[in-house]
Nucleic acid binder design. Structure first.
Lengths: 328, 328
DNA sequence: ATGAAAGCGCTAACAC
DNA sequence: GTGTTAGCGCTTTCAT
């Protein structure tokens, strides 16, 4: 628990020299060796607190997500971590629970210099506040974003991806295709619905607003509810496009519960390719987003921004993964 | 971006007074009002960097987990967060990836005072290092632990829980009960195997080491592999007890893939009651650990430890959740 | 009740 | 190449 002063004194040098040894400044091999010996002997660990104050940086990056229990974020976070750690940063995973108070705690952390910047992946984020914060602090949006905010973002072409997924459902012979969508206040929900609509119309299937089943949330249970409503309704469907895997997995479970076979009686496609989409029976057809790369990219963008380098929004590629839930 | 000096100057008081206003020291209502007005006007946000250095604390707590993608940890982390945030702390979720280097980065953070303490939930943690670190720094073990380390822990009675799960399998009429276990270098794996063994023996079923199928890891795929090996072997089983839900879900998928019906042909029980254990078809019988409470408890223990208060290890309760995978 | 001043541990500009 | 010194922004005695 020694500090830099004690090391300097013990080694018979100045604190500046010790600092230089620590940070690779110009020092004689001889003094360097001597100082290093003392550091080892005294088990000296430089305090980041002093360094942080001096450099007025915390080397901490906030990653805002609505909840940690949504596996959607796992790989993105992995990508972020692997990108920032080699550059001497660490991330603070912030669960907002879509709660403005929680969110404010985290915004405060960057205002109070406990964090150097933010990667926001929270679709429920208070965009007004985020925008204001972005005036004075480095912020990047990942996955969910607002163009008008002027804050740089990383995303995929949601409309095109949904278009491909639904086109696939048409290609396997479905004509009555329902959609399970979350709240259209979210940009991705609107974009994916547009893709659904375009795929139908280009194939001569009229779009009907009644075929879209909206949920009150993003979770498994919401998917179940939507599916129950759909299957107990007056219309029959041969395929369902769900706006996320979690919703699709809920729908799948409910279909089974109501005695339907997937994909024979009804095909189901999801979106995101979360790890669990492969664990269900049948495995889920879905859209793969380049999660990991989205993570590394947004991380690098944030660090660039922190260092005053110019940053451009990025559109990443996606891929349709065809699995058992849409083809026998 | 004003600092305390500017506020003091603008308000015509000393920095000490500003500090008192911020921290609830004794100040005349009149000066207090004046200072607060200036704070608002200058949009002053006190830097935690200065405060942290001065108080030599970071108010940051590390939570060590092997990987964020294992849903097992979600609820525990939730509990931790809700316990620490009201007390002015924040947590840094640390994915070690069971990589000693990664781990060391995080250990370094507490050595370098960037974090005030650690809650370790990583079964692969380097116990030697952790023990040494615990001599100088507050550390709590949650879920996975070593008694010999002398580091306080929070856990459930794994042996008893496994005993109950396997007893349940016996009660529904199974006599040929296999176990899917992970690596017995982990304490929980050893304890749960003991429970499995005791349940068999108390019911007059001889324990056979060959009925235990060991995996090379904790994931879904490892569960699949174990199940494949089991079902393509020479022995037939009517029930399987998996040491975790993730392994059980893998086993379930593989059973389906090989044309077996669950629970009719083979019953499957898991352990942990992760969110997904309810999303499979059939839903999984499992052991519920009081995740959230384990989180809050270990968090409070850590904060107590940081504040020099005495801390006792805690054994928490568990519950057998019987669902479709073991009863038609 | 308020102010002056010391100091938390570190880095970097400047001088030698 | 090395030492001296001035802060980074804050809290907390110690005076008054």
């Amino acid at each position: 628990m020694a500090n830099i002063q004690e090391v300097a004194k013990e080694a018979g040098v100045s604190v500046a020299t010790v600092s230089r040894v620590m940070n690779g400044g110009a020092v004689t091999p001889k003094t360097k060796g001597k100082v290093e010996e003392v550091i080892r002997r005294l088990k000296y660990e430089p305090s980041m607190l002093g360094r942080n104050l001096r450099n007025s940086e915390s080397r901490l990056l906030l990653v805002l997500i609505p909840t940690i229990s949504n596996p959607y974020y796992s790989d993105i976070i992995n990508g972020i971590e692997n990108a920032v750690i080699p550059q001497g940063y660490n991330i603070l995973l912030c669960e907002t629970d879509s709660n403005p108070e929680r969110e404010n705690i985290y915004f405060d952390m960057v205002r109070k210099k406990m964090a150097d910047g933010i990667i926001s992946m929270d679709p429920t984020v208070n965009m007004e506040e985020l925008k204001i914060l972005a005036e004075d602090h480095p912020i990047i949006q990942c996955s969910e974003y607002s163009v008008e905010s002027g804050i740089p973002f990383v995303t995929i072409d949601n409309e095109e991806a949904a278009y491909r997924a639904v086109s696939h459902l048409v290609n396997i012979g479905s004509t009555d295709i329902a959609m399970i969508n979350s709240d259209v206040t979210f940009l991705y929900a609107r974009q994916r619905q547009l893709g659904y609509q375009r795929a139908l119309e280009e194939n001569g299937i009229p779009f009907d607003e009644e075929d879209v089943y909206y949920t009150n949330g993003p979770s498994f249970e919401h998917g179940q509810q939507a599916m129950r409503k759909m299957l107990t309704g007056h219309k029959e469907y041969s395929a369902v496009f769900a706006v996320s895997d979690l919703l699709a997995i809920g729908a799948l479970k409910e279909a089974h519960q109501l005695g339907l076979r997937v994909p024979e009686d009804i095909a189901i496609a999801g979106f995101d390719k979360i790890a669990f989409s492969n664990m269900t029976n049948p495995a889920l057809t879905t859209i793969a987003q380049p999660m990991y790369d989205m993570g590394t990219t947004s991380a690098q963008m944030l660090i660039d921004k922190i260092n005053g380098r110019p940053v451009e929004s990025t559109m990443m590629s996606h891929e349709l993964i065809i699995r058992e839930s849409t083809i026998g």
